[in-house]
Amino acid sequence: MTSQPVQRTPQAERTAAMRLRLMEATVDCLVELGWAGTSTTVVSRRAGVSRGAQLHHFPSKQALVVAAVEFLTERRRDELAAAAEELPEQGRTRAVLDVLAAQFVSPVFFAALELWVAARSDAELLEAVGPLERRLGRETHVHALGLFEVEEAKGDNRALVQATLDLLRGLGLAASLSDDTRRRGAILDAWATTLDLRLER
């Protein structure tokens, strides 16, 4: 009787799985422990990754957390694209607001908040976070235009979409302190009415 050969997982797959665990553990730590309480040691322990392996891929806390926020933001963008395919024609504007609002009450957003606050007084962190935030902001704006099915150059569309994102970011900040689901819903109901009147399609 011959023994079956042991199936080995390719190195690239093992590395990808390890990085994913590190990304998710980093965001979890930022949300639960904040910037000050998040360390590479805590993250590697939570991810079940050896300290040496973690340091090989991310030699500093800054490199780790910026990569984690960027990585999981991209994953949220994929989820956003999937949600867009299920938007109704009737009441579309209000449904779009719900889809976008979900981005601003997610763990990734709360983790990003920790980075923004820390970067305000940390020049080195700001240098890394600033360009990332600007790029993600531009990409979110473009996605929002697509969800609302409007052209940026028409009328006040650009300003209205940006105001929408600023509103949602503010509501997300409020949600980081307490559950204001009902108040947020009422505000979005009113804003949807404004957008339906003002957006030029």
Rank of each mutant, 00 (worst) to 15 (best):
F148M: 03
E139W: 04
T164M: 11
L167K: 09
D156F: 03
A153K: 13
L168I: 02
R135H: 08
T140H: 11
G146W: 07
T164D: 12
L126A: 15
E127W: 06
V150H: 14
R134M: 12
L132M: 15
E133G: 08
R138L: 12
E133P: 00
L136S: 08
A144W: 08
T164C: 13
D166N: 12
E152G: 01
L147Q: 04
A144E: 07
G137A: 06
E127D: 14
L147D: 05
R138I: 02
E127C: 02
D156T: 00
R169K: 11
E139H: 10
R169C: 09
Q162S: 12
L160I: 00
R138W: 05
P131G: 03
R169Y: 11
R135W: 04
V129L: 10
E133Y: 10
L126N: 12
R135N: 07
G130R: 14
E149F: 00
L168C: 07
E133R: 12
L167A: 11
L132C: 04
A128M: 10
G146K: 09
G130M: 12
L136Y: 06
E151W: 05
P131Y: 05
N157P: 06
L145P: 02
F148K: 01
R138T: 03
R138S: 08
A163N: 13
V161L: 06
L136N: 10
N157D: 11
D166W: 10
K154P: 02
V161S: 04
R138F: 06
A153P: 04
R138G: 04
Q162K: 12
A163M: 11
R135Q: 14
E127G: 03
G146I: 01
E152F: 02
V142S: 10
R135G: 12
G146N: 05
V129I: 09
V161A: 05
V161R: 02
L165Q: 09
G130A: 15
E151G: 02
V161Q: 08
L145Y: 14
L136R: 11
H143I: 01
E139C: 01
Q162L: 13
E127K: 11
E151T: 02
A153N: 06
V142C: 05
A159F: 12
H141K: 13
T164Q: 13
T140P: 00
E139T: 07
H141C: 07
A128H: 09
L136H: 13
A159P: 01
E149N: 09
